[in-house]
């Protein structure tokens, strides 16, 4: 089922229409997609996320105001010369929010990928080999799970000098524990199923078994977790740059909030607008994650 996947994706659109609809059952991926889109909050989340992506990619050039230039009277409220007001040195908040999303989203996405990859690798080895490997790796995971992750990330970023790379690395290092636990549990469950035993008997090597036989089967919960991880990576990045630990040369939502922190009682808009942007982004991702969860979960399917 997984193998036919890339084929349907690369087929030209005409070919998809060609066979009569009743002739073959729906492709599982498309079935999942349908359930996902029928779910109103999930579809809403998807639209929201696409809108945010569009705004951060094309917004800055469409709006055309330099986010780092002083363009108006400092701390002037929304509507008074600028749409979302200005910050403490007279920079346009809307321009800042549009540009700030780029770094936030890139850091969030890349560090989420890193978190997931580390988590899958650790969890896969622990779950596949079991025994002592499992005990050792799980102790290692527990160690990272109980450490105050933001504090560790703060220390790492401070020591290695703040830059996009160190921030991504720090978020990746501190966040993978939960993905590892999840992957391990899935590997242990699936590793005992008949088809895996059959593949092993047929002479499949460990690497093949782990990543070609077991991993595809354990992907659904990992995909759902990925959405959560992406959301929390974005929140993490926001927290770090709020504390002044972001890349000093890059404007991000968290940085705007942190820089205007001392003025929030005089100018609520300076911290409110970037915060709303973070909130909506993470909300969109959570909604999508919930939607995927419901679409992949057969019990929820019946309910829908």
């Amino acid at each position: 089922m997984m193998k036919s996947d890339p084929m349907t994706d690369t087929l030209p659109p005409q070919a998809e229409v060609a066979p009569p609809p009743a002739a073959k059952p729906d492709h599982p991926m498309r079935e999942t997609m349908k359930i996902f889109l029928r779910n109103k909050s999930a579809a809403g989340g998807l639209i929201l996320l696409l809108a945010i992506l569009f705004a951060t990619v094309f917004g800055p050039s469409m709006y055309g105001v330099d986010p780092l230039e002083m363009v108006w009277v400092p701390l002037s409220p929304p509507g008074d010369g600028t749409p979302l007001g200005t910050d403490y040195i007279g920079r346009d908040i809307l321009a800042g929010v549009l540009v700030g999303g780029r770094v936030t989203l890139i850091v969030g996405a890349v560090s989420a990928i890193m978190t997931i990859v580390i988590g899958i690798l650790v969890g896969a080895f622990a779950g596949f080999f079991g025994g002592r490997t499992d005990v050792a790796l799980m102790k290692f995971t527990e160690f990272f799970q109980v450490l105050p992750s933001l504090l560790l990330a703060m220390v790492l970023v401070t020591i290695f000098a703040p830059s996009l790379f160190t921030i991504i690395l720090a978020i990746g290092i501190v966040g993978w524990a939960q993905v590892a636990r999840l992957t391990r549990a899935e590997f242990m469950r699936i590793g005992n199923l008949e088809y895996v035993k059959a593949a092993r008997a047929a002479g499949a090597g460990n690497a093949y078994l782990m990543f070609r036989v077991i991993l595809p089967g354990s992907l659904p919960p990992i995909i759902v977790a990925s959405a959560l991880v992406t959301g929390s990576s974005i929140l993490f990045e926001a927290g770090l740059s709020f504390l002044g630990l972001g890349d000093p040369n890059q404007l991000t939502w968290g940085l705007i909030i942190g820089q205007n922190q001392n003025y929030l009682l005089d100018a609520w808009w300076t911290v409110t607008c970037p915060g709303v942007a973070i909130f909506l982004t993470v909300l969109a991702i959570s909604l999508i994650g919930d939607g995927i969860n419901d679409a992949l979960n057969p019990r929820a399917r019946k309910r829908a």
Partner: peptide, 22 residues
Amino acid sequence: SLVGYSAPVFWIGMMLLIVFAS
């Protein structure tokens, strides 16, 4: 719970601060 999940905690604090200060 969706809102609580998605909003940055420092920002929730600031919003409460604005409400309860002014």
